[in-house]
Design a protein around this nucleic acid. Structure first.
Lengths: 342, 342
DNA sequence: GTGAAAGCGCTAACAC
DNA sequence: GTGTTAGCGCTTTCAC
């Protein structure tokens, strides 16, 4: 292929000339076909096909000030937890003719803010953010920009002041409540010496907070926790578990901030000859496919990740089409899956 | 936040007026700061900050016919195998001031072609594709468009006709050779009754082909294989293994087309009480973090996924900056990791 | 249903 | 080093 040989691009005016109509008519034939006479439409379309015309969306964006691009920022796409949300979001947006610009913040607030800035420069039509922990500066920046924003993967519970309020729209769940539910599950199954393994990152910390609060309420002692710098990889699970056991050798249950980590703990237990759940119960988070595939199957907290992405996409599409986006803030909840690992 | 209250946007001319310079000077201060006098630069910058000016990249793109956007198409982002490549690609491109538009083909050729079409409409500056199996139509379409293209995750070996030649640039490895290497490893470890578990998708099939060819050469009999419709989830591993064992009960080794699937097989073996590797050896592909974290640790084929994304990004950046992109086609190779599972 | 004119907000020449 | 003049390729009025 001749790399630096850009073909002469066909423009809309070329199509217009060839079809013997005006440029506007071509534009209409493409964007609002029902406002064009059937014969004209057919003529234009055949010319478009013959010439291989591809509309220049950049020019269109500039003229209409609608980019048909939505940007999403996730901490990292290689965390499978976010991948599925992004996947569903991309597909949902595509249905509405929108494309996704992907940003990765690497869990750094500064990077997130910088990404938002470039995205605003691209005049993206919407923004999907992960979490509700945006800085004051960023929040006001977004408010000023007037761009539709959907926050995901979190949702402040009533009275939960640690994280900010919903910026514009949101679809998520309370990580605090999810952590508490996990603790409740373990306590119900008779465990009283709990531990936590997770990442040192906002939502993971909230889960831990909820987990600890519930444990405290049940009169359980301290919950040792080992927080790893994000992004956490499954291969850190072994050393995590080791540290936890060093701090509390009689641990009876571990809650992991995601299923991958939990699977790692499962493997490590296997290696050490620790029987799960008899000697140690292991609980995950997310309900990734691996949770069901593991042996023993992992008890976990089910998060409908794809639905979250789909809903976020739909809310944006509705808003962008000036339709009713429904509730501003959607709690998609979570569910504890009690399986054999606890 | 007032959603439908777009703030009056500051334009470049506003900045120019406020700074008492011409519009071009502002443009230069932003894009080529070293071509502007220090004082002027400072003045412009302070006005930019004060007014909160954000350059409209859409307008810039139209005027310069450079979008500073690169699009990537992967089958699905929720396959962790691709996620890391995309992650590295995004980050590498960001260093050069480029952003990533994400497309997912869901392993369907038509979707891929449609995505390419929209991306071309956006006048993306570059394109990253997965695999080398593009259709004739798509190939010529891309050639005509004159956009730099990098193919990834595959690379035709000399004499390998099943997949097309490199379109423009490529960074990958031979899936055929990788499959053969896996077979060789298993054979070396004394296994003679091999099986395969994987997805019914181009690259997975190539690995199988190489695997079978090697087995045949070693005089081994038929290699039963069970190909699942993509995308394959780890929770299908159990039934896959069951099917394979039904076809050949005395199987001594299974090669899985990715590590996640292999981990699933490991769990299933655990459940069935099959000793790994004594009764059944399990080999994965990719060297995902789970391969090391598993117990027993998974023998696998190491693919430097992040490096692939990074290289693809660098090749594009070099080309876009009119620098020497180096070799057109980079074979990043692979490596067999012999661990305890075989 | 169709067309003419007027931009969208920038960058690319080319002057000075 | 800075400014002036022309567009980039569309969509949007507003006529007819």
């Amino acid at each position: 292929m001749p790399p630096s040989t850009p073909t002469t691009r066909v423009r809309m005016s070329d199509v217009a000339d060839a079809a013997g109509v005006s440029l506007v008519t071509v534009s209409r034939a493409i964007n609002t076909p029902d406002k064009v006479a059937p014969e004209t439409l057919a003529a234009v379309r055949s010319v478009v096909a013959r010439l291989g015309y591809v509309p220049n969306l950049t020019a269109g964006s500039l003229a209409s000030s609608r980019s048909r691009i939505v940007a999403a920022i996730v901490p990292t796409i290689s965390n499978p937890v976010f991948a599925e949300t992004v996947e569903a979001l991309t597909l949902t947006l595509a249905e509405g003719g929108y494309q996704l610009l992907l940003g990765q913040s690497a869990y750094r607030d500064n990077d997130e803010a910088a990404l938002v800035e470039t995205f605003l420069g691209r005049r993206v039509d919407g923004l999907v953010l992960t979490g509700c922990g945006q800085s004051r500066t960023l929040r006001s920046r977004l408010a000023k920009a007037g761009v539709p924003v959907v926050q995901t993967w979190d949702l402040p519970e009533a009275g939960e002041a640690a994280i900010g309020p919903v910026l514009d729209m949101a679809v998520g769940f309370s990580n605090l409540a999810a952590g508490a539910a996990a603790a409740r599950h373990l306590i119900e199954r008779g465990h009283r010496r709990l531990g936590f393994v997770g990442a040192d990152e906002a939502r993971s910390r909230q889960r831990l907070e909820g987990f600890r609060a519930e444990a405290a309420q049940a009169g359980l002692g301290d919950v040792p926790a080992d927080l790893l710098r994000s992004p956490v990889q499954i291969d850190q699970a072994a050393s995590q578990l080791a540290q936890l056991l060093a701090r509390r050798a009689d641990l009876s249950a571990v809650f992991c901030s995601n299923d991958l980590l939990a699977a790692g703990v499962l493997f490590e237990c296997r290696r050490r000859g620790i029987a799960v759940p008899q000697q140690l119960a292991v609980m995950g988070f997310g309900d990734l496919p691996i949770a069901r595939a593991a042996w023993p199957p992992l008890s976990t907290v089910i998060i409908r990740r794809a639905e979250m992405g789909q809903r976020a996409g739909r809310m944006l599409l509705a808003r962008l089409a000036d339709e009713d986006p429904g509730a501003r803030s959607v709690n998609i909840g979570f569910e504890v899956a009690a399986r054999a690992s606890t």
